[in-house]
Amino acid sequence: MTQTLAVIIALQWIGLIGLGLVVLGLARQIGVLHNRLGPAGALMLSKGVKVGEPSPKFRLQSIEGGDVVLGGSDASGQSTLVMFVAPDCPVCASLIPTIKSIAKAESGRTRVIFASDGDPEKHRRYRAEKDIEGMPYVLSGQLGMTYSIGKLPYAVLIDQDGIIASQGLVNTREHIESLFEAHRMKIATIQDYLALKNDGEDRRDNSVLQTY
């Protein structure tokens, strides 16, 4: 009797652990699927300043010494792309050549400003290493907290009137370009675009149902 009970207990534990491993496997697969089904455009995560709101005004000191004004209307009529990066962010490093190329392509229409926080010396080295010394680079924890930057690289596009035009997590050239595209289409993010598209499809589906 005791032996039978021991076997039953052992089998139940083995079953329970097996079930636990299966659930763990499923949860991991869901995580991987989420990564693979990520959006094609920049993903807006910010809980701070929203698209369409005026950008808070900051007067920051650039890493090379001069003043950089962020926010408010731009006298030269240019938009501002604020790129939040960090030296220990590998995706940021891989995106720098793209940012340089976009800055060149948008020259005269958009100024690019790099933003981060932490040890200035570390950032000076990073700036020299990545050859972005021609572009303003500011260090401000307050700036990051204002925009609630939770993941990097994160970009914020401020239009010439100082209004947040678009923003989001940018991992590729397509993501950065989607910010400009979102601004042109007057849609805040790719999520809003998809929501509008889905709403349109829902309405179409409903109208089909009503026809019958």
Partner: peptide, 12 residues
């Protein structure tokens, strides 16, 4: 078995 189960639950 209980230890293994707690660890798996934590990972899940």
């Amino acid at each position: 078995a209980f230890a293994g189960f707690v660890i798996i639950l934590y990972a899940i």
